[in-house]
Simulated assay, not measured.
Amino acid sequence: MPFTISEIIVLFFTYSVVGWLWETFYCSIKDHHFAYRGFLFGPYCPVYGFAVTTILIATYRVQHSRILLFLVGIIVATVFEYVASLFLEKVFHMKLWDYSHLWGNLQGRVAPQISFFWGIGVVLLVRFIQPFIQRVINWEEAHTHGILALLVVLVMGTDTVLTIFSVRHFHTTTQQWEQCAVAYREKLKQRLATALPEEQPALAQRLANWHTDLVKWRAELRLRRLNWNERRLVKSFPKLKVLDAKHFNELKKDLMKRE
């Protein structure tokens, strides 16, 4: 093992924060508004921490070769991204990224273009960034003797538990909206089927814009409001999909305008 357990924890935390900073900066510029990225509450993206730490351990014996470093980096990063996507979908019923529009993608979870840039990133990371980060961690380990690693476990562990509760609440909320949307659409379809000819255009228009009406009448229908973290997830991840609430995915844009 090239790193101690304490070093692995601090490396994981460091690159989780670096990943959060990068995603927040990039997405804020791209979306023209501040995007508080990350799945957890705190300013870190564990997927980057897990990915980079795994890559550093897996590529430790091939660091002398840029080609091997590039190839191993592609393999490890691609497998990790696929597993992370599968985990989010199966456990939390959520899809945070979708590469379906890219050539050669696999179930929208990974794509050759993304994996290629992962490979380049791994070479840059291992050759130029990690040596500096490792010197900082060596200094920290010599002075704190693992205390920082313990704090990381406590803080991120607590954050993970709170996030699980928050995501479960979010799932319950989306199910309520989904059930109401299905009932509302079915009611409009039945009215349209029995309506007089002069009434049909107006009803057809309402059916086409059902999500606008549903959001407008949210209070009367006693539908749950999204809390801060739920609004953040929807706003910061425009491609977010709740896999068992397809109607919620259609109305979330209208919902965010009124939240």
Rank of each mutant, 00 (worst) to 15 (best):
P46W: 07
V47Q: 01
V47K: 01
V47H: 02
G49D: 06
G49W: 10
F50K: 01
F50T: 00
A51N: 06
A51K: 04
V52M: 08
V52N: 02
T53E: 11
T53C: 14
T53F: 12
T54M: 08
T54H: 00
I55P: 13
I55M: 12
I55L: 14
I55E: 05
L56M: 08
L56F: 05
L56C: 03
I57G: 03
I57A: 08
A58N: 07
T59K: 13
Y60A: 15
R61T: 04
R61A: 05
R61V: 00
V62K: 06
H64C: 12
S65G: 12
S65D: 13
S65Y: 13
R66Y: 03
R66P: 00
I67A: 11
I67T: 11
I67F: 15
I67W: 15
I67L: 14
I67M: 11
L68V: 00
L68T: 00
L68H: 10
L68C: 07
L69H: 06
L69V: 04
L69T: 03
L69A: 03
F70P: 07
F70I: 00
F70R: 02
F70H: 04
L71P: 07
L71N: 01
L71Q: 01
V72E: 01
V72P: 04
V72A: 08
G73L: 09
I75R: 02
I75K: 02
I75D: 00
I75P: 02
I75C: 09
I75Y: 04
V76W: 08
V76C: 09
V76P: 08
A77D: 01
T78F: 10
T78M: 10
T78D: 03
F80A: 11
F80P: 05
F80S: 10
F80C: 10
E81N: 04
E81Y: 05
Y82A: 06
Y82Q: 05
Y82R: 05
Y82P: 09
V83W: 12
V83G: 09
A84S: 14
S85D: 09
S85H: 09
S85W: 08
L86P: 06
F87S: 06
F87I: 10
L88N: 12
L88G: 11
E89V: 09
K90L: 09
K90C: 03
V91Q: 09
F92V: 02
F92C: 08
F92I: 03
H93Y: 15
H93D: 14
M94Y: 10
M94C: 14
K95T: 14
K95Y: 15
L96C: 04
L96R: 06
L96M: 11
W97C: 05
W97L: 03
W97D: 03
D98L: 15
D98S: 15
D98V: 15
Y99I: 05
Y99C: 08
S100F: 14
S100M: 15
S100T: 15
H101E: 10
H101N: 06
L102Y: 13
L102W: 12
L102Q: 14
L102E: 14
W103T: 07
W103Y: 13
G104S: 13
G104Y: 15
G104V: 12
N105G: 11
L106N: 11
L106G: 09
L106R: 13
Q107R: 15
G108D: 10
G108W: 13
R109N: 13
V110G: 05
V110F: 08
V110D: 05
P112V: 06
Q113C: 06
Q113S: 09
Q113F: 13
I114E: 02
I114S: 05
I114W: 05
I114V: 10
I114Q: 07
S115T: 05
S115I: 03
